[in-house]
Design a protein around this nucleic acid. Structure first.
Lengths: 205, 205
DNA sequence: CCGTAACCGAAGCGCTGCTCCCATTATCCG
DNA sequence: CGGATAATGGGAGCAGCGCTTCGGTTACGG
């Protein structure tokens, strides 16, 4: 009776419950794709053919819903980073991973903001996934920085913020097809370590 | 009786109206600074000691309110661009202007998104101001590109989007003081024309 | 096949942006 | 200085939002 969260960990046990779960996920994918991660959850429930209370029973918060949608992709990205960290060219490995991360972050409008918010808030259901992403980014970044091809004045949080910023930019207008790549190329070239940059006014090296 | 917009152009004529106008602007500045450009307009009206209908009478849309708040700063930026366009170092001029634009764009949370949306929507009250900004950016960018120090595969829209993206990133966490500069330096170094970049896989030059 | 637990629907709370109508009231002019 | 007037502002109202709660129903699985 007091069990507010019916499934503390795992899927619903009954068959119809699991069906509803899948319907909700499909509806959320479609709705978030069209309207962004701030879309009305009532609309998600409507599309799933389910009442709003049912949605909240399955996913107590919007972030929990997002987490389920994103977990698989984020896990893949973490594994990808673990592979790439052994690459002979750490700079290129980082660039490759950044491009893949950016594709994931640009999937839904508003997703970059959700990820950044989750990183900030340890209580968020999304926090663990996003922190994992940050750790993966940190590993790749550290290797690339040690190789000397990537500027050293940057940490994993700032890298994630920058990649998400480019994903954000990609979502802000109906660009030509290659605009997203251009934003990423701006970032990736900006990441390159340069001997001394005449335009930079940095005092410490 | 049918005059929905009391002041088609210009300030309210009566003295008390002008007072209220100023109160509203001050309240909006404070509220937007604390809660971002999506803050509740009821809250703005509350702070101004005014009813919500009064706010809407003075500023028919949220964008009209924002426009009044931003116009001065944007005009200054346009003038600044006009000055800088004559600079002997177009690359450095562009970098300087970008930094100033980023400061303005990072003033309120959500402002980069509002600016990008206004650029997209010709009906927006903010559109004119933002389009002026784009034109200014275009001039500076074209000069810098002709000088050969700035990569040529970029237009004014993309430049504005990139700067706003960095302003967005600056707002996404409580960074150390220099993080905003770091994001901008990433962008500015990414803008530099490079002979051939080994990490880039672009097919056309 | 039936008891039971798990599920779902509808209503409700406080909030939002935005609109409308009418009384008030400050203003400006004689 | 006072009064007519028109501009002004207050409050209620609409539809929608996120999120919660309660109770009846239903589909399940022993």
């Amino acid at each position: 009776m007091n069990d507010v969260t019916p499934w503390p960990a795992g899927l619903p046990v009954r068959a119809d419950g699991r069906r509803t779960h899948e319907h909700l996920l499909a509806a959320a994918r479609a709705t978030f794709a069209e309207e962004g991660t701030d879309a009305s959850l009532r609309e998600v429930a409507r599309r799933a053919g389910v009442s709003i209370a049912t949605l909240y029973r399955h996913f107590p918060t919007r972030e929990a819903l997002l987490e389920t949608l994103l977990r698989q992709g984020f896990d893949i990205l973490r594994a990808r980073a673990a592979d790439l960290v052994a690459s002979p060219d750490p700079g290129e490995a980082l660039a490759t991973w950044i491009r893949e991360l950016a594709v994931a972050s640009a999937r839904y409008d508003g997703l970059p903001a959700s990820v950044m918010a989750a990183l900030r808030d340890p209580e968020s259901t999304l926090h663990a996934s996003c922190a994992g992403l940050r750790a993966a980014a940190g590993d790749l970044l550290a290797h690339a920085q040690r190789s000397g091809h990537i500027r050293a004045d940057l940490d994993a949080d700032q890298l994630l913020a920058a990649v998400n910023a480019m994903a954000w930019a990609t979502r802000q207008a109906s660009w030509t097809a290659d605009a997203g790549d251009r934003f990423l190329s701006l970032l990736i070239e900006g990441l390159a370590a340069r001997p001394v940059q005449p335009t930079a006014k940095s005092e410490e090296c």
